[in-house]
Design a protein around this nucleic acid. Sequence first.
DNA 1: GTACGTAGTACCAAAAAGGATACTGTAAAT
DNA 2: ATTTACAGTATCCTTTTTGGTACTACGTAC
Lengths: 133, 133
Amino acid sequence: MSRPRAKLVTNFPGCPVEATLTYLDGKWKGVILFHLMDRTLRFNELRRHLPAITQRMLTKQLRELEDSGLISRTVYPVVPPRVEYALTPLGTTLKPVIRALAAWGDEFVFCSPEGRELRIAKALNAPAAEIQA
Amino acid sequence: MSRPRAKLVTNFPGCPVEATLTYLDGKWKGVILFHLMDRTLRFNELRRHLPAITQRMLTKQLRELEDSGLISRTVYPVVPPRVEYALTPLGTTLKPVIRALAAWGDEFVFCSPEGRELRIAKALNAPAAEIQA
DNA sequence: GTACGTAGTACCAAAAAGGATACTGTAAAT
DNA sequence: ATTTACAGTATCCTTTTTGGTACTACGTAC
């Protein structure tokens, strides 16, 4: 019993949250899906959206998303090569989830003053604020 | 430039999805938050919900969630010790996100016939089905 | 004839995450 | 007198993930 993430059901009996996160796990999958929500993108188009990624990593994350059935890979037999990545119907069903993740990030995660690093909005916890559940 | 997950903004310029996932990253955080959505739980109560976790891991994940400001840890100076974990106001704002993740998992992720393993519902991709975006 | 853009692979090294096991201290229950 | 429950730590080890660099092939542009 020791698999990559929690890919064994025994690890989180009946937890649908981890079940979903299992498929979003990977350092770049979130961003990739986020950008593919707008439109189909070619390999190097994606790369330009992810300045810090290496080719190896981009390929790997795309293959994993493809294996999960969330995105499709279409190769056009031309030269130079042309490969397009797009959400599958199944991938499209993730849109509400991605949007929820994006909405929360927009509202509560900031770059710290020094730049570069993320910081969460903890201010909310200080006052005895009433937040609707 | 190489931090744990994508904790550098340069890795996903302006991507709020990865920003959020950064805080949910960790093998057990999803399940923990899922269970804390219902009610405050003590250390060993959580442990009983996560049969496969080790004490070390549970402690580690809880500390990270606490450091993020998503959960609170309340120690009652009694013996035997009593420590309660609960969502903070900030953590409470994650509920819609957790619910979105849970809804997708419920609908599209199953245990494979052999049991134990997860499987995604790829059937959706076979027919030329029309899925609403 | 050299460089560029395309979409990758292959190989090696580093870092991070996760797991196994043993140990702590107190009080109540058996 | 021993065991149980509680909420952890400490140490070591393995697995998984991620990064770095170099390399491929083809056709077009300079």
